[in-house]
Amino acid sequence: EPSQADLDALLSAVRDNRLSIEQAVTLLTPSSGGGSGGGSMDAKEILTRFKDGGLDRAAAQALLAGRTPA
């Protein structure tokens, strides 16, 4: 399960175009075949909204942490 520091680094990389959204989703869902963790939004949607400015960093982190299976 990614830590808050991992999520923060991942969000920074996506925002700075050092990591594509697809690459980030793969890192967030290493063994689930890329499927959502059952959250209301999947990781790709969360990351896309964050990059487009629709979500701030704290909200994106909380959503990603919340949808990651324990």
Rank of each mutant, 00 (worst) to 15 (best):
L64D: 01
G66C: 10
A70D: 15
A9E: 14
E1V: 11
P69M: 08
A60L: 03
G54Q: 15
E1T: 13
G33L: 12
G39A: 12
T48I: 13
T26I: 15
S12A: 08
V25S: 05
A62G: 06
A43W: 06
D8V: 05
L27I: 13
V14C: 02
L28M: 06
L47K: 00
E22F: 05
D6V: 09
D56G: 05
S36G: 12
G53V: 01
D8Y: 06
A24H: 01
G66I: 08
S20P: 04
G35T: 14
Q4Y: 15
K44F: 14
S40V: 12
E22N: 07
D56E: 06
A9G: 09
G34C: 12
L27W: 05
A13T: 02
T26W: 05
S20M: 03
K51D: 01
A43T: 13
A62V: 08
T48Q: 14
R67G: 14
L63F: 04
G37A: 10
D42Q: 08
G34D: 08
G54L: 15
D6M: 13
Q4K: 13
G54D: 11
L27D: 03
R49T: 03
R57N: 06
T29K: 10
G38K: 14
Q23G: 06
A60H: 00
A43S: 06
N17L: 06
R15G: 06
L64I: 05
K44N: 08
I46F: 01
D52Q: 12
L10A: 03
I46D: 01
A13C: 07
D6Q: 08
S20I: 02
R67S: 14
F50M: 02
A5R: 07
S3C: 12
R15W: 10
A9S: 09
I46S: 01
A59V: 07
A5G: 09
D16Q: 08
Q61I: 15
G35K: 09
V14E: 00
M41L: 10
S40C: 13
N17V: 03
S20V: 02
E1R: 10
M41E: 10
Q4N: 14
R49Q: 08
A13D: 08
R67Q: 15
R49Y: 03
A59L: 07
S32Q: 11
R57V: 08
P2N: 13
K51L: 09
D8P: 03
A65N: 11
G37R: 09
L55N: 01
T29V: 13
S31M: 09
Q61V: 11
A43Y: 14
N17T: 04
A70E: 07
L47V: 02
L55V: 03
F50C: 01
L64N: 01
S3I: 11
G35P: 14
G66K: 09
A5Y: 13
L47I: 05
P2Q: 12
P2Y: 12
K44W: 11
A43P: 10
P69H: 15
V25M: 07
T68V: 08
L63N: 03
P30D: 06
S40G: 07
A13L: 06
G54P: 02
F50A: 01
R49G: 03
D6E: 12
V25W: 03
D6A: 11
D6R: 07
S36Q: 13
D8N: 07
A59S: 13
L55Y: 04
P2R: 10
V14Q: 01
A60S: 02
P30G: 15
K51Q: 04
A59I: 07
P2H: 14
Q4V: 08
R67L: 14
F50T: 00
G35I: 08
R49F: 03
A60V: 07
S32Y: 13
L10W: 05
F50P: 00
R67T: 15
I21K: 01
L28S: 02
L47M: 03
E22R: 04
L28W: 05
K44E: 08
A9W: 15
R18P: 00
L19C: 05
S32F: 12
Q23R: 07
V14N: 00
L11P: 01
Q4D: 12
K51H: 04
G39K: 11
D6K: 08
G34M: 12
A5V: 12
F50G: 00
I46P: 00
G34Q: 09
V25H: 03
A60T: 05
M41F: 13
Q4T: 14
D16M: 06
A24Q: 00
N17A: 06
L63V: 03
G35D: 12
A59H: 07
S36M: 14
S36T: 12
G37E: 09
D6H: 14
G34W: 03
S40Y: 14
A58R: 07
L63I: 08
P2T: 12
S12C: 10
A13S: 05
A65V: 10
D16H: 08
G33I: 12
L47P: 00
L10D: 00
P69Y: 02
E45P: 02
A43H: 06
R18D: 05
R15Q: 10
D52P: 01
A13Y: 04
D16K: 04
S12I: 11
G38M: 15
I21T: 02
T29R: 07
S12T: 12
S36I: 08
L10R: 01
E1A: 11
S12D: 15
A70L: 01
N17W: 02
S12Y: 03
D8W: 08
A62Q: 14
L28R: 00
L19T: 04
F50W: 14
R57D: 04
P30C: 11
D56Q: 04
L55F: 04
G53D: 03
D56C: 05
G54M: 13
D8K: 05
T29H: 12
P2L: 14
R18G: 04
D42R: 12
L28E: 00
A13Q: 05
R57C: 06
A70M: 01
V25K: 02
S32V: 10
G35M: 13
P2E: 10
L10T: 03
G37P: 13
L63Q: 07
L55H: 02
K44G: 05
S40R: 07
G38A: 14
R57S: 08
A5K: 06
V14M: 02
